[in-house]
Design a binder for these strands. Sequence first.
DNA 1: TATTGTTATACTCTATAACTATA
DNA 2: TATAGTTATAGAGTATAACAATA
Lengths: 153, 153
Amino acid sequence: MLDRVLELVVLLNDDMTQAIEALDLTPSRTHLLWELGRRGPVTQRVLADALKVTPRAITGLVDALVTSRLVTREPHPADRRATLVTLTAEGSRLTGKLERDHRTLARALFAEMSWREFASFERGLADVIANLRAHVVSTGGRPGARTATRRAS
Amino acid sequence: MLDRVLELVVLLNDDMTQAIEALDLTPSRTHLLWELGRRGPVTQRVLADALKVTPRAITGLVDALVTSRLVTREPHPADRRATLVTLTAEGSRLTGKLERDHRTLARALFAEMSWREFASFERGLADVIANLRAHVVSTGGRPGARTATRRAS
DNA sequence: TATTGTTATACTCTATAACTATA
DNA sequence: TATAGTTATAGAGTATAACAATA
């Protein structure tokens, strides 16, 4: 069963390799696209809350995605301070694929998993726990933070 | 059951908060300490392979941990090119605690988990899968890589 | 020749702080 | 006054490339 999941991961990965190279995707940029795909056009403030990141970080991520022609900044119809980050046609195609792949993977992971199979999966999950541990230790338990908070000067 | 795990995480987290602040711990530095605790004194080359990172990155991490007095660089007895990264007494105390806490958490997660409980845990794991997905997409499936590889100039 | 670890340089991601435009 | 998003600045983590010392 684990074999099947790994095989699937490799397949999905092969599918996406081209997009990564051509579109300069990174984990954070992909995460932003993911949220955008589920929420539709939203302000950068909403994205900042969704990614649990400061508005400043969103500015940089959106800049990069605009350059890759995956999103655009549109004026907010009611609030002239705000901008609506919107998927382009290509961005929309990509997030659609992301969601379909995500569902496929989730089904493979859980749909056919028995208790016995899960027990054999336990060893593989040890790494996940180790990561959780490191995370809790070094970020004060806040899952959104990837870098340590420096002391304010 | 999930409540018990979360409670435990909070407890361990409280235990470690002081160390984080005082010793300038970060996820990568904690990971290095973790490997060092399991392997004993090793060369930076070995650590680079263990963390799946270039030797250059190890230089910076070890520099920081030396400053925090958690490790020292000792001359390799047989190879004058290499240095042995070694835990200090305080570093050893810390990694000992890390390992004990890790075991405690792993036991809480798995020892009493039934299939039914796992099913209810599935929703929580959706985030893990989403992260896996983002990771596969943006790093070409190499779990060790956290930043995207830039095109060589 | 090959390997260990360094310096030099550059990129991503994140943070805080100060600021502008708007509400 | 408060909020949305920007520029300025800084730090952590990583990479490639060139290099010195040693194997």
